[in-house]
């Protein structure tokens, strides 16, 4: 267990405005506590999420990325999360090629009424990313190939 670093991981979350962001608000108003590693980026809908965002997040130093939106069928925009889910299915297959361990990425549905679920998802994912240690592959590539950075 010694070689597993337990330093604080950096986690970026891409969440939709209507369900998960509001669910996170509910976690707040309910004064539920969760681990503080997560930094949320609010988007109108998971349908807005381009897989490149996720790669970009890893490139910029994230150790884990969480994507969360409305439950299937509950999308504020009718079908945005279905598009997101389909993109996810494709992207998931490419993770290995990208050199990203699938444990560093999590896709979940958290509705506006699921403050507790949001907390559980964040805590579980944070713990999972912790066991993975820091993600340094992309940073190394940056160091090797990018001059003046």
């Amino acid at each position: 267990m010694e070689n597993i670093k337990t330093q604080d991981p950096k986690i970026i979350a891409f969440v939709c405005n209507w369900c998960t962001y509001t669910g996170a608000d509910l976690a707040g108003t309910s004064r539920l506590k969760y681990q503080p590693n997560i930094r949320m980026i609010k988007l109108p809908c998971t349908g807005r999420i381009d897989p490149v965002f996720i790669i970009k997040a890893f490139e910029k130093g994230a150790d884990g990325v969480l994507v969360s939106g409305c439950h299937p069928g509950d999308c504020h925009y009718n079908a945005g999360n279905f598009h997101a889910r389909r993109r996810w299915m494709m992207f998931h297959k490419l993770l290995d090629y990208m050199g990203i361990d699938e444990n560093r990425l999590h896709f979940s549905w958290v509705s506006a009424s699921e403050g507790k679920k949001f907390v559980d998802v964040v805590n579980a994912f944070t713990n999972k990313v912790k066991t993975q240690g820091p993600f340094e592959k992309y940073a190394k590539i940056n160091k090797e190939f990018v001059i003046n950075e």
Partner: peptide, 22 residues
């Protein structure tokens, strides 16, 4: 309605969601 699904789908990124651009 501004969901941005088109933005994420566009291969050339020529459609952008104002306020949530790439």
């Amino acid at each position: 309605q501004g969901c941005g699904t088109c933005n994420a789908t566009c291969p050339s990124k020529s459609i952008e969601l104002i306020g949530y651009t790439d």
